[in-house]
Amino acid sequence: METITATEAPVVLVRVPKPPGADQDAPVGASRDVVVGVDIHQPCDQLLCFAFDEAARRGGRLRALYGWSLPPVVRDALALEAAELDMAPDIARSLGDMLAPWQRKYPSVAVAELTPVGAPSQLLVQSAADAALVVVGRRSRRSRVGAHIGSVTHAVIHHCAAPVAVVAHR
């Protein structure tokens, strides 16, 4: 982890393959897709630039994912469904707006915009089950105190079978 927080350059982590005969998980990298986790409320140009570059280089699709949660005040099933129906279009539009300039810059990259309700780290790990690469970010920080990678990046590093690229961004 220290290397990840000590550099501004992207760091790619690749799991060591299991020995022959060991229980194998789903085939990693079965597709050429790149999965990128984004926060629609924060700028992440360095992250998107890296993800689009990798998808273009691999000739794969880019799956851009923003996982979100419903407000905790929503308690019953009907209110949950109504809140999701009300919020989902705005969230999808925000993700689309974030990706639009990059799609114009990389017209050869097909993009899947994913905005499911759920924990972002779990959604990223699930979405990356067959991906060639998962791209997550970490905020660049000048302070030497406190966490230097977020909880989503931490979880993806530890639970994702696919290679994980951690990209520092402001």
Rank of each mutant, 00 (worst) to 15 (best):
D39Q: 03
A147G: 04
R57T: 14
R58P: 11
R141L: 06
V73A: 09
M98P: 06
L65D: 03
V167I: 11
R57F: 14
E54V: 03
Q103W: 06
V38F: 03
R138I: 11
L124Y: 03
R93I: 09
A51F: 07
S127K: 04
L62I: 13
L78A: 14
W102H: 02
R75S: 05
A128Q: 01
R32E: 08
S94G: 11
V125P: 00
L124T: 01
P27D: 11
A161R: 14
V145G: 06
Q42E: 11
A112T: 12
D39L: 00
A22R: 11
T153P: 06
E2Y: 13
A51C: 06
T5V: 10
V145Q: 14
G59C: 00
P19E: 09
V35W: 05
E54Q: 14
L47I: 02
A168R: 10
R57Y: 08
H41P: 09
H41I: 09
D97W: 00
G146M: 08
S151N: 12
L47W: 01
R138F: 13
A161H: 14
R63K: 04
L48F: 05
H148L: 13
A83M: 15
Q126M: 14
Q122D: 13
P89N: 03
P101I: 10
A168N: 05
G146K: 05
D23Q: 12
T3Y: 07
L62E: 11
I40Q: 04
A155H: 08
L70C: 02
L123E: 09
Q46D: 15
P101G: 12
R58S: 13
R142D: 13
L80I: 08
R63P: 00
R75F: 13
A6D: 12
D45Y: 07
P101S: 07
L133T: 06
S127H: 07
A30Y: 07
Y106H: 06
V109P: 03
A162T: 08
G21V: 06
L62Q: 07
R32H: 10
